[in-house]
Amino acid sequence: MITKMNHVSIFVLDQESAYEFYVNKLGFKVHTDAPIGPGMRWLTVCPPGQPDLELSLMSIEEGPMFKGEAAKQMKELVKKGTFGFGVFQCTDLNATYEELKSKGVVFKKPPTKEFYAYEALFVDDSGNWFSLGEKPKE
């Protein structure tokens, strides 16, 4: 029986810039930052309220994962905003939207009432987009 997820990969164009975005703008916590060798860095961050879910900020390089032209193609797709990696949650969407906007986070959609939820859409520094929703009020 699968009980939970503890790692998710987010492909980024530049790990240093991703660190600045996820840690200093979104306020995520660094879980592991291991410079393993030239061009090899294992960097994972966690949303503040979810310390056991590591988001692995993966650089895109040619290797076993991306063979031949695939790395270049993948970078292009990320840049174009092809990938949406998930839905984040906050306590209050309007306040979080105001705060992130003041820190320079780019929103594709401001807080909007949709059929299924009240949500906004933002993009990270690479072009990946995320939905941001609100925890239902008790």
Partner: peptide
């Protein structure tokens, strides 16, 4: 520990896919 044995902090599937296991 991370410095001494970084692979023990990384799920193996990622290390292998990134091609880190053998050089490391």
């Amino acid at each position: 520990a991370l410095k001494k044995s970084p692979l023990s902090f990384i799920p193996n599937c990622f290390s292998e896919q990134k091609g880190w296991v053998y050089p490391l």
